[in-house]
């Protein structure tokens, strides 16, 4: 923990900002029921009502900071619960896709030969189909329950993770210390776990951040199309879609969840950039 603080202290301002943004989002996600002034689905007023920018807004008690959405629910509350649902699902999905992708990628890189061929060609087939269309197809057949959503996105995303982890592992696999381990007679798992994984960690952690963003945006996109999280569950993507028509009347409500998506994406990327920079070993001269 001490090391973590030291590391954070030495980070550039942009990275600190990124960490700050992520922490706020995580905090909101974890403590949603405590922070949110209302319950997730409470209707507290008229549609698109109030907000701090509206001087003639009717006074709610307690005051609604961001006004209400298209059916009169408190937008601030929905935003906080949305963080919980969207980030939670994106996180689990990314973890799953990395678990699958890294394992397959490392096995392919270490064993080579037909194992590599079979895995790589299968992945090629998956990657040949546009992800969004593929996901829409499966989700409309399988239904849009949360577990299905997670598994489908995770598997689609694992193909990308497979590619990068295979490439990284290939570079490490030709190192002589791996050869030493092979000549010693070590098994596949030991080589993957002890020789390859520790050395592949830096680029993969950075990739994790990026992938998390993509998954997160992907869920938002699916929700926007109506195949993501189903109402009344709050989630940022569906909130943009539900309130989208308001934009025609000069109502900024749909932009608020969109801004939340953008902010978190930027925050994660700031941290990822810093990680990549550190991982690439470029020394900064002050």
């Amino acid at each position: 923990m001490n090391d973590f603080w030291k590391l954070l202290k030495s980070a550039p301002f942009a990275a600190k900002l990124g960490v700050f943004i992520i922490l706020i989002n995580v905090f909101a996600a974890i403590f949603a029921p405590v922070i949110a002034p209302y319950a997730e689905t409470d209707v507290i007023g008229d549609m698109w009502d109030g907000g701090f920018w509206d001087e003639n807004a009717p006074q709610h008690s307690p005051v609604s900071l961001l006004g209400t959405d298209h059916i009169g629910r408190d937008l601030f509350t929905r935003l906080i619960y949305g963080a919980r649902n969207t980030i939670g699902i994106a996180f689990v999905t990314t973890l799953l896709s990395f678990g699958v992708g890294i394992t397959a990628g490392f096995i392919a890189a270490t064993l080579r030969g037909w194992v590599d061929q079979v895995l790589s060609r299968t992945v090629d087939v998956f990657m040949a189909i546009p992800t969004l269309i593929f996901a829409l197809m499966i989700l409309s057949v399988m239904g849009t329950s949360i577990p299905v959503l997670i598994v489908v996105i995770a598997i689609l995303d694992a193909t990308r993770v497979y590619r990068i982890s295979r490439a990284v592992a290939m570079d490490i696999e030709v190192m002589e210390y791996v050869e030493v381990a092979k000549l010693r007679g070590e098994g596949l798992w030991w080589i993957i776990r002890h020789e390859i994984l520790p050395n592949a960690l830096a680029p993969l952690v950075a990739e994790f951040g990026l992938r998390f963003c993509f998954v997160f945006l992907f869920i938002a996109a699916l929700s926007f199309l109506g195949l993501g999280l189903q109402p009344p569950t709050a989630d940022w993507g569906s909130m943009v879609r539900e309130n989208a028509s308001g934009i025609s009347y000069g109502i900024i409500v749909p932009l608020i969840p969109a801004a939340a998506i953008a902010l978190l994406t930027v925050g994660v990327n700031l941290v990822v950039d810093w990680f990549l920079h550190k991982a690439s070993g470029i020394r900064e001269i002050k």
């Binding site: 002589e176 210390y177 030493v180 000549l183 010693r184 002890h194 050395n199």
Partner: peptide, 28 residues
């Protein structure tokens, strides 16, 4: 091929490499 050799045989022939930098796992 070394894959078909017994552990005992692998143990009896060892190798030391030219570049100690890449022959040692930097994370061990």
């Amino acid at each position: 091929s070394f894959k078909d050799r017994s552990l005992d045989l692998l143990q009896r022939i060892q190798m030391i490499y030219q570049m100690p930098d890449v022959a040692l796992n930097p994370r061990q």
